[in-house]
Design a protein around this nucleic acid. Structure first.
Lengths: 218, 218
DNA sequence: CGCAGTGTGTTTCTAATAGGAATACAAACC
DNA sequence: GGTTTGTATTCCTATTAGAAACACACTGCG
């Protein structure tokens, strides 16, 4: 049970499946196309890949027989390599999509890290940071709305449309969450118990210290 | 203007600042402590680091003079290395926190990727995946709520508390967004225009294809 | 005409990050 | 007495991010 059966599936990273998944829309695409497309839509809820990664993923997928490539000439001189999914490849992505475990979404929220470390920053500056994030979120919401609308026309984009509608709501929520947090920050500032650069004399000498956010009651 | 002034700040990756930031709460911490703490709280809005990374960050921070370390003996035999922030280190994180640009949060949402590729999966299976994600989100919301509550007691954790309250609302929103998306999926299934494994005969031969989600009207 | 700037298309290099496995020993459980 | 769980750290490898370089075509401007 190695190859041929198609039921073994070499454990590829999620990014490989994302690229292969893009090709499952049955268009021949170049690495450059994939990058552009990902920068448009996919980045609103899933990663904005680098060229280097896309191109190396494509090579790997080809080595696995999941895609084939051919060179297309655009003029007399310049050509480009376009990739198409194979039957094996289609089978493999399907299989991945149906059976992969439901993973925790990866979130690295730099703004929240800085709020968490709020004692390091002047309250007004922190406010500025969160405000800027709120405005950025609204911009991304609008982007998603435009893309979702555009997807609405083509019936083949029914699922992308749902994903983009999700993205629209997600970024709207981010915007509102930022707004709410501004309220919390103002409240803290008003209560006076902010600013001090962290008290906490080191009185629990070396054992697992009582750490913020989690009680030792467990 | 190289060292000594403290105003140059070697461009460290965000993770370094996160670790240094944790030490800015003025507790001596071992690498293990940092890992545990991050797994509790920080992972709800910012990264769950690996041991290897934490330990190498600590070494780098020490090389920069941002932290110092000493070995603490717990019994006759076993010791551990605990780290404390220095004045230079404190100055550097403050500076980073105040002046770093507001970055786009990194989101890699595997569930959404699979919805986007919904044509690959049976509608019922897709529903299961989204449902599981919704339930996971509720679990994380509850976790954040517990931590936020715990942070409420110590006045020094005012900012962590705000961040955790944000996390609570964020994961509640994720839960609700998943619920709404289930509605969209049901609607699509009811409308009948799902299931087909993507039509789209390759009729735009090689030029930038009309890609989902973005009109060529620009 | 020449040259800058922008867009297509791909490769190369390095740093950062994720994740598992290995090591070591102590304490708790059965 | 042996297994599991928790503390504490290191090593190794694969994945991922990001910049830069290269190559050429097309557009606009003075």
């Amino acid at each position: 049970m190695d190859a041929e059966t198609g039921a073994d599936d070499p454990r590829l990273p999620a990014t490989s499946w994302a690229v292969l998944g893009m090709l499952s829309f049955e268009q021949e695409l170049s690495g450059y196309d994939i990058k552009k497309w990902a920068d448009w839509s996919l980045k609103l809820f899933y990663w904005s890949p680098s060229f280097s990664q896309i191109y190396s993923e494509l090579k790997r997928l080809e080595k696995h027989g999941y895609v084939t490539s051919r060179t297309v000439m655009q003029d007399e001189v310049r050509g480009k390599r376009v990739y198409a999914i194979t039957d094996t490849g289609r089978e493999a992505v399907r299989n991945w999509s149906r059976t992969a475990p439901v993973e925790v979404p990866v979130l690295k929220h730099g703004v929240l890290l800085r709020v968490w470390l709020g004692h390091l920053t002047e309250p007004e500056r922190l406010r500025e940071i969160v405000t800027e994030h709120r405005d950025n979120s609204e911009r991304r919401r609008a982007e998603a709305a435009v893309d979702a609308e555009a997807a609405h026309d083509e019936t083949a984009w029914a699922y992308p449309e749902i994903a983009l509608k999700w993205a629209e709501r997600y970024h709207a929520a981010e915007r509102d969450l930022a707004e709410q947090m501004l309220g919390d920050l103002d409240e803290l500032a008003a209560s006076g118990r902010a600013t001090e650069p962290v008290p906490l004399p080191p009185d629990s000498p070396s054992l697992a210290p009582r750490l913020p956010g989690v009680p030792s009651t467990e």
